[in-house]
Design a protein around this nucleic acid. Structure first.
Lengths: 135, 135
DNA sequence: TTTATTTTATTGCAAATGCAACAAGGGGTT
DNA sequence: AACCCCTTGTTGCATTTGCAATAAAATAAA
């Protein structure tokens, strides 16, 4: 079982490294492409929810998003009712770039998971959901 | 398919984060527990082979191992025939600690992948091998 | 053999990471 | 109300990370 655990790790590192390399020229390396994808897909998300969602360190996530804000990809707006939360929204610049990043991610998914039969893909999804629920 | 890709990522991060936290008190955080496991299991491995094996950056791997050497976990020895390669070996201190780290990793594997039936585990291993071969 | 290319180890440097801590608001209890 | 705990955002600081570059040995090509 340890072997599966390690295979998941190396696969994950290889996949994210390829996207980081791909988007480095646009300042979206260091997993910033990932944060940006999530903010585009769930606008209004706030800092800690984003970090929890991605299962990354709160402060690392915070600073990555701060950089996205500084680069003009994300806008931070105060919540209407809760004075503590700052909601995150993609800018025009981000929504314009979103299809490209999404397509790259879809390409990786297609070249890897797409090599499985539809039945295997379905099965993989179920197995991943099961094991993820244990952590 | 993108969802599976992301599930693999979050699962991987959660799993490695838990081990990093577990062994931080012994200076084996920042994935150093992983490097150490591999060196214990394949003594004589050299720097670049280790990095390629784990699918991590060469220099990051190099410095992590340098720290393991500084902390007395690993010994670096010149190869007999090839003057370029430095082979890595676990010290007494490392071999003494190995069972504990291995057991922790096995525990994570058991609590997650162990929640699947034996048939599902076999299937997961096959699916992971297939998708890993594409990267 | 000589030259070129690849492999392996290593360092410089700027940026990212993550633990610890803090501030301040929210929500619950008494 | 007053009190306490939890949540959310934020910063300080030492360490880690990773791109780029270098040196030197090995291998391939000429």
């Amino acid at each position: 079982m340890i072997d599966e655990l390690r295979q998941i790790g190396t696969f994950s590192r290889r996949a994210t490294a390829s996207a980081n390399h791909e988007f480095a020229s646009q300042g979206l390396n260091n997993n910033r492409f990932q944060y940006l994808l999530r903010i585009c897909e769930r606008p209004g998300l706030f800092f800690d929810a984003l970090a929890a969602d991605m299962a990354v360190d709160r402060t690392t996530s915070f600073r990555a998003v701060q950089k996205l804000i500084a680069e003009g990809y994300v806008e931070k707006r105060p919540d209407a009712v809760n004075k503590k939360v700052r909601r995150l929204f993609p800018t025009e610049k981000a929504t314009a770039l979103y299809p490209t990043i999404h397509q790259f991610e879809a390409g990786v998914a297609d070249r890897t998971i797409g090599s499985l039969t539809p039945g295997e893909q379905q099965l993989l999804a179920e197995l991943l959901t099961k094991i993820n629920a244990q952590l």
